[in-house]
Design a protein around this nucleic acid. Structure first.
Length: 493
RNA sequence: GGUCCGGUGGCCGAGUGGUCAGGCAAGGGUCUGCAAAACCCUCUACAGCGGUUCGAUUCCGCUCCGGACCUCCA
């Protein structure tokens, strides 16, 4: 088995992945705060860590992937005050939308998806431990983490507490002993959600929930912690402080992985900047859009910034069209052992810190090879690159493609369905399905097929003018015909 | 201001101390009734300036440009 290397943000270098328990790999990824639709930037970690999850499942017997839902937060409270919609309604609806959107991107469900509001008891227990350990204190109804009490504070994000203080751009609350101290628990008035606690009725601070949920579902120490690069400070720094101080000597997360930001016009896409586009906006482009966006995300290495453009989305769609076209025409028969080896060759770059762009390039090589063998061609350059000395049986490269593409989570639809409109295809939730079905426009399958029959008669009679007229007519309606040795096939543009 | 990460051919985007990334676009060809698809060929880049080296796009330094973070953020 090839070793897996991942870039650990804490160590700032690539490290060989050695799980605490090789029989059970454990990963935690920060999930959404459910107060609004997911934007394109929110989708990046979901897709990136979905690929990692799939890869880990291939490499290890058991993988537990935890991704939380943050359903208690002052942004949610603010939204409820603005719109008048009850908090529970906002979080329930937004969670359902999030699930539908992520399913449309082909993301598997995590093993566990804990909600913050269902882990208040764990949060309180954690805070009590921190107070008992001398790492937290009560002040004016708040419980604060004492940053000076933790020597390694700032290690993850690479800053010293002094620097943080110097650059602080918020007013320091008077009850803080140290300007860097952060809130673990804060009081709630009667109009704000709250839970009874040893410190009165209140609600948790932002960071404590992740420490509580990873502890509950993965234990005091686990293997991988992931999230967006912008979470390193303060969120992950504070999480480390809380968890390490609550469970001294256990080490918390062994590897930290952070995905780069998604940009639009060279700037980070974020809700606070207001320059965001929702996943749902993209899905409305067509039934192909979810998978195309997923591919777009994987065409750039996860740690690099990615500048989103519609041209990029269309290019990803065109790439998928080509992949599906190959799968559609490739024979099912194949050399199984050779297919397995070729799939390994494609997936090999994923073991080097999830190099999806290189894996995708190799996947394209498999497509070229299969096309050459199925349609006609030599593909000597590709054969050499793969390291094959002779041509594999037709269908073999396609079988390898299918196996490798499964780890990347692309070409998950039936090739014919992809080509002809995907009506009713996706297994997304109800709202996602509606979206897909409504996006299919143009002639029905029956209309297209009867036109093809009419054209076939014209071609038999060598009435080329009529045959071309039918083809042009369909083309104007978004239907492309392709004559091949096995007959005429069609697809939607 | 502090910390960090980047600048690769028309566009996107991997990677490497010295032989090829790959894709899109463009041009040429094979095939086809004509197309389409597919395959083949062409297109040889690493921000700038120094340094290390037999040799640097790759290592080091400086400069310029872009971005992220500095307690809302995936």
């Amino acid at each position: 088995m090839t070793d897996l290397f991942i870039h650990d943000s804490a160590a700032r270098r690539k490290r060989r992945f050695e799980p605490i328990d090789p029989g059970h790999v454990r990963m935690y990824v920060c999930g959404p705060t459910v107060y609004d639709l997911a934007h394109l930037g929110n989708a990046r970690p979901v897709v990136v860590f979905d690929v990692l999850f799939r890869l880990l499942r291939r490499l290890y017997p058991k993988v537990t992937y935890v991704r939380n839902i943050t359903d208690v937060d002052d942004k949610i409270n603010a939204r409820s005050r603005e719109t008048g919609e009850p908090i529970e309604a906002i979080t329930a609806r937004t969670t359902a939308d999030f699930h539908a959107d992520m399913a449309a991107l082909g993301a598997l469900e995590p093993t566990v998806e804990p909600r913050a509001t269902q882990h208040i008891a764990e949060m309180i227990a954690l805070i009590e431990r921190l107070i008992a350990n001398g790492h937290a204190y009560v002040a004016e109804g708040h419980v604060l983490f004492s940053v000076p009490s933790f020597r390694d504070y700032g290690k993850l994000s690479g800053r010293s507490p002094d620097e943080l203080l110097a650059g602080a751009r918020v007013d320091v609350a008077p009850y803080k002993r140290d300007a860097g101290d952060f809130v673990l628990w804060k009081p709630s008035d009667e109009n704000t959600p709250g839970w009874e606690s040893p410190w009165g009725r209140g609600r948790p601070g932002w960071h404590i929930e992740c420490s509580a949920m990873s502890w509950k579902h993965l234990g005091e120490a686990f293997d991988i912690h992931g999230g967006g690069h912008d979470l390193i400070f303060p969120h992950h720094e504070n999480e480390v402080a809380q968890s390490v101080c609550a469970f001294p000597g256990r080490g918390f997360a062994r590897y930290w992985m952070h995905n780069g930001m998604l940009l639009v016009n060279g700037e980070k896409m974020s809700k606070s900047l207001g320059n965001f586009m929702t996943v749902r906006d993209i899905l409305a482009e067509g039934p192909w859009a979810g998978e195309a966006f997923r591919l777009l995300l994987l065409r750039t290495h996860y740690r690099a910034a990615l500048d989103f453009t519609m041209e990029g989305l269309r290019e990803a769609k065109a790439e998928l069209d080509g992949h599906y076209a190959m799968l559609r025409r490739a024979p099912a028969a194949h050399d199984e052992g050779l297919a397995r080896r070729m799939a390994e060759w494609v997936l090999e770059p994923l073991h080097d810190d999830l190099n999806t762009p290189l894996a995708l390039a190799r996947l394209r090589d498999l497509r070229t090879l299969e096309n050459a063998l199925t349609v006609g061609g030599s593909a000597t350059v590709v054969l050499e690159r793969i390291g094959l000395t002779r041509e594999p049986a037709p269908g073999t490269a396609a079988a390898a493609f299918r196996e490798a593409a499964q780890i990347l989570g692309i070409t998950r639809f039936a090739p014919e369905a992809w080509a002809q409109g995907l009506a009713g295809a996706g297994k997304a939730t109800a709202s996602g399905d509606t979206l897909m079905a409504s996006a299919v426009a143009g002639p029905t399958r029956e209309e297209v097929e009867s036109a093809i029959t009419a054209r076939l008669a014209a071609r038999r009679a060598k009435n080329w003018a009529e045959a071309d007229r039918i083809r042009d007519d369909l083309k104007a309606k978004g239907i492309i015909l392709e004559d091949g040795p096995a007959g005429t096939s069609w697809r939607r543009a």
